[in-house]
Design a protein around this nucleic acid. Structure first.
Ligand code: ZN
Ligand code: ZN
Ligand code: ZN
Ligand code: ZN
Lengths: 168, 168
DNA sequence: TCCGAGGTGTAATATTATGACATGGCGCCT
DNA sequence: AGGCGCCATGTCATAATATTACACCTCGGA
């Protein structure tokens, strides 16, 4: 079953095509994961997640480090460590095509096959699970005797907002 | 329709699970592309392509530069330039999940949707086109009003050879 | 109290990729 | 032949992304 496409959010103009994430929800999911693993949901982890959730768009690790730096300089390695935790918690994904990271407010069940749709105009990412894609992947794998473990599916293109409201 | 899986090569031990590419075929495709664009198929481009074809596995750009270096040092930037040409020619693909490059001996028609299956044991990559995956992607895109341009589909897992012949 | 697991802060380094610029070959026009 | 434009090359430099190493800290259990 796919996520709700959430098509209703078009028309919001807080910031050009910005689709910020429900920060509370994603944060509580991270906290739950931490608890379940007996690990702390530390300040650094919270700060990185909060920034990504507020941004609503993918950010590079060094960009995150930059934004989080105030009096103290936050080093990239600290960001990478937080990102690793958050990815394991399922709250953050990495875009392989851009080496960037974004917050996710979906709850991905076990073997769900998720497609990341990346807008080349505004940079926004939408996620959708597709059972058809999943079956297609299992199909090609079976044909070649390949045992699939983890798929990476990214679709570059143009989102609905940018199609209707050119370049900007 | 999928490519020939070439499963018969199991048991060959020239080099663990090596599936080298038909160098002549891929080279002539590159040459044809060059001609069609009025560009030269230069020595550097030939050397990079030949190395990738012979290797049969993905290589990092710096690894290629390393292998091609003899008396003269081949700089990474030269390799990237050659790779750019070869990717446009459709002879080489980039694996986003590993930032590595591999030769391809298939002829991908227009909008073919190709899945890269990457073995995490031996590193080999198999390609297969899937119409079902393509339809799935068009489906999720349509649902969200997204206009898909270029898909990146990589499947990490274990190839048939490595499944039958454990770890090694 | 001691110990160990995990987190932090910091420096250093590795890996991947691009920018800038002078040079050289090679067609093409005059 | 001479000049010109285009593209590739060689070389240096730098940007951008990611990991390793290590000393220190803190918390919680034996
Ligand atoms: Zn997600
Ligand atoms: Zn957009
Ligand atoms: Zn291919
Ligand atoms: Zn394998």
């Amino acid at each position: 079953m796919a996520h709700d496409p959430d098509q209703s959010s078009r028309g919001v103009h807080a910031d050009a095509h910005r689709h910020a994430i429900d920060a509370d929800a994603v944060q509580s999911r991270a906290r739950a994961y931490a608890t379940s693993k007996g690990l702390p949901f530390t300040a650094m982890r919270q700060r990185v997640l909060a920034l990504l959730a507020a941004s609503g768009k993918p950010m590079a690790a060094y960009e995150i480090a930059e934004k989080l730096s105030d009096a103290r300089r936050v080093q990239a390695v600290q960001v990478y460590r937080a990102l690793e935790f958050l990815q394991e918690a399922g709250c953050v994904h990495r875009l392989a095509s851009q080496s960037s990271y974004f917050a996710c407010d979906h709850l991905h069940g076990n073997g769900e096959t998720v497609v990341f749709m990346v807008c080349s105009q505004c940079g926004a990412v939408q996620e959708a699970a597709s059972d058809l894609v999943a079956r297609g992947l299992r199909g090609v794998a079976k044909t070649t005797g390949f045992k699939p473990l983890h798929p990476i599916i990214e679709l570059e293109g143009e989102c609905a907002d940018c199609t209707s409201e050119p370049v900007r």
